[in-house]
Design a protein around this nucleic acid. Structure first.
Lengths: 154, 154
DNA sequence: ATTATTAATGAAAATGATTATCATAAACTT
DNA sequence: AAGTTTATGATAATCATTTTCATTAATAAT
């Protein structure tokens, strides 16, 4: 388990045993900027750790999700992609998703208002629906630069 | 094809033939508030139109999506749900999604700022990434009222 | 340290949503 | 009414994700 987390009692309990596969999978996630699918993680792993099965990748991603280490983004075709969540609000970003090729672009240049608005909205919703909000996704869907050009056949 | 659309030349071309299945599927969508999965639509149909196959449901949803009649929301487990898109901004809403049971709650009480902010953000993003934004999703993920209570076993 | 206990792993099979195939049927055209 | 084209639906294929279960590795107990 990453050093910054192992002091956290609640996490320690949920984690159970911190194993090599978990270590390596976290490593792959932290050394790639993108939003990796389970398959992509498995492939990246396979080079150095061919013994690690894709089942473990799925199980580990589920664990990391529960622990809040990562975030899940589902692309338009329904495939799940995962990315590391950064500490605090540093690195927090939203997504631009291309409906044609599935490309995911991050953007981070929020207006200051954006964060405030989200906070405010969360508060209202929490009260009104008694919903415990853990995180949010904001995504803009459309066509990316490339696909705009060769999108005659949509 | 719904009367308000049949004057639209571009739509007419994309639609081709307006058939009974398409009519019925649109009907199911417009008579339910929720976010229906393909299976749910198929089941609803089956009572009155057992001859309509689930393949047609999928194909028709894809068509409606292309035409902009409906919107696709993918739940945390990756299953797609579809809902009618309303004219203009009436009925525009965002989602609260429960990570445990997958329940989707709509909310519509935006701050006025929300719409403005979205517009502003869209403009910035369009310019910066040359991305054509068609629509956006804002969703808050967490635990719903019910699941908060019996969530001991997460 | 060694053994016992328990949790994590991985191979293989199962699941389940979505897509592709293709022969048939329905809708338009002439 | 006959011919042409498009949509349909049954079936099979695909593909991401889950389940199952025997094996292995990590922690606890001795």
């Amino acid at each position: 388990m990453p050093r910054r987390h192992c002091a956290n009692q609640r996490l320690r309990e949920q984690v159970g045993r911190w194993t090599e596969p978990r270590n390596v999978i976290l490593d792959v996630l932290s050394h790639s900027k993108g939003h990796l699918s389970a398959k992509e993680i498995y492939d990246a792993l396979y080079i150095t750790h061919p013994r690690i099965g894709i089942t473990t990748v799925y199980r580990t991603l589920e664990l990391f999700l529960r622990l809040g280490f990562i975030q899940k983004v589902i692309s338009p075709d329904g495939e799940a992609h995962y990315e590391l969540r950064t500490e605090g609000n540093k690195g927090h970003h939203h997504h631009l998703i291309c409906l044609r090729c599935g490309k995911i672009i991050d953007y981070q240049d929020f207006a200051d208002e954006e964060l405030e608005l989200v906070k405010k909205t969360e508060k209202v919703l929490t009260q009104k629906h008694n919903f415990l909000i853990l995180y949010h996704n904001i995504e803009f869907l459309g066509l990316c630069d490339k696909c705009r050009k060769d999108a005659g056949d949509i």
